[in-house]
Design a protein around this nucleic acid. Sequence first.
DNA 1: CTGAAAGCGCTAACAC
DNA 2: GTGTTAGCGCTTTCAG
Lengths: 340, 340
Amino acid sequence: MSNVINRKKSRRVTIYEVAKEAGVSLATVSRVINGSEVVKEVTRKKVEEAITHLGYKPNAIAQGLALSKTTTVGLIVPEAGFSYVGQVINGLLDVAKIYKYNIMLHTINEGISDVESIVDDVIKSRVDGVIVYSDRITDRSIALLSQYNIPIVVISNRVSSDNICSVFVDIEKAIFELCSKYLASGVTDIAIVGDHRNINTTAMMLKGAKRAFKDHGLEFDNEITKPKNYHSTFHFLKDYFTDHKHQLVIANRDSQAMAVLNAARENGIRVPDEMEIVGVIDTKYNSMMRPQISSFSIPSYDLGAVSMRLLTKMLDAEEITDKEKCLKYLFTNRQTTKLD
Amino acid sequence: MSNVINRKKSRRVTIYEVAKEAGVSLATVSRVINGSEVVKEVTRKKVEEAITHLGYKPNAIAQGLALSKTTTVGLIVPEAGFSYVGQVINGLLDVAKIYKYNIMLHTINEGISDVESIVDDVIKSRVDGVIVYSDRITDRSIALLSQYNIPIVVISNRVSSDNICSVFVDIEKAIFELCSKYLASGVTDIAIVGDHRNINTTAMMLKGAKRAFKDHGLEFDNEITKPKNYHSTFHFLKDYFTDHKHQLVIANRDSQAMAVLNAARENGIRVPDEMEIVGVIDTKYNSMMRPQISSFSIPSYDLGAVSMRLLTKMLDAEEITDKEKCLKYLFTNRQTTKLD
DNA sequence: CTGAAAGCGCTAACAC
DNA sequence: GTGTTAGCGCTTTCAG
């Protein structure tokens, strides 16, 4: 297939060697590499032959230096969050592939020092743009990054400015609608499990619930949060449900929804008869539980794909009609709810 | 914290500007950046002040060009496999951070054309080394890559050569031991669910089972594979278990083990009383099922961490005692087995 | 201890 | 159409 010669320990072939082999100047080689129209057909042929013969591959680093652009974008995701970011990454990579961008992957955790070092790495590596999956709007990484005047797309958070766009799902609305529906049918004992790893999302969920309750002349005040002394949501909920019960419990990540389900059942609470459960972020595991957990399907893949597409637009200085892109969610009624 | 001036639309500051600001030559600036010992203390101070004052950050691309090394490594993982590769990536990134390497992420699917283009990208981006998470030893990506004489670490597969090392878990042995134990206790109706996405792992599992059976004077011939016309393992197994039952079913990925569990139960097969189930790859979801699925814990994080460490050794031309690193697994007995 | 200068591999005017 | 040349930002001899 590829005529690459196995050149052990030999330097990688450069544009000069191709030029010599083809009997042209390096400028011409550069032209054919970059698909310039002005090269005569016969010389192009010669060059192309030399290229495949020598197995030449342009040095992206050198190109990057010469052009001051790297065709790579930095991706920053929360550490240990791959179970729910995986799909986002897939979407992102697929689009990146189309537009010939490479992805530099960085993970970030809570530590501030970490934020600084990530930003450092990102800036030093001279990526053309950055995509940040971040739940926290106040995230220092974004603030720091934006100082460098580099195009940024943030996922899962509504923000925008001169060089920042965002792609997200309107969780507030999702929860509002869900709660409204339940309230309308007389269900008022609704609780939301707070997610300390996704503070902003939790805030949105609460906001949606509060709005729905207010519309019904009620007040929402039922956030369940894991105290620090419990090391897992499940263990906490197991205790919690010994003397608590709600008509509807809403959790963010599917692992939390599962914890709710398991904890409830271990306390003999029948789901969905006595208590209904809804998850927000949906992974494939969500539907593998028995009963299957009803949930919103956040379009994770699209979140990634759209973000990357948006970034390419920013990089090409294309007109951007909407700097804050809100994606549609879908509610899937499974076996932990009694909805129709 | 950082004294970076918000320099809108202005070029990034270069080593020249730092040199001018500090009143020294760029060679000297370069020396202090790279921690050379020979710089006099006072000049170093001057330079450092200029650097922080200007908010200078070295251009890694230019450094890469000058040094012909990029301090980035390419990571190639199977597309859509983040649920079980996530931990590997975390381990890898943590170690990469320590050794100051950046990660360029690529995903790969079955298509051959894809392989070529990935290898192309990897070579063009002049990474210092590559880590490939690949189940298939015959993987063309590795073959192609190795032509370029670049250090490679392969995860989850035993291979090695001049510039290739590998880190993996001895699945064959794991299954051998498990089967031996069951066979010794009289359980002989054992089946293994084939995983079309991980052909090599499946082969290892079968090999282990066969060896155990042979040791007991028996022959193993119980691979369950999803026919092409079923779009999910679960749906196939649901039909399969209407007229099949085994004493022990072993599955590779946890999602498959869950499919086994759910399918069995929907056919009224009691687990573990009538049928026991063991999974191989363990994610957090595995233990969220009820009953909790007994499984091997493949040390995913370590797989990544060790691989990255190994790669740094190759890059530093350190002595490598073992080019094929076999990591320990652990069996966790949960609620789908009757073992003690 | 520090500076001058030659690349690293490639692109993009500007000539011819 | 094609070649020449000046950078892109940094490292590294080699002088001084």
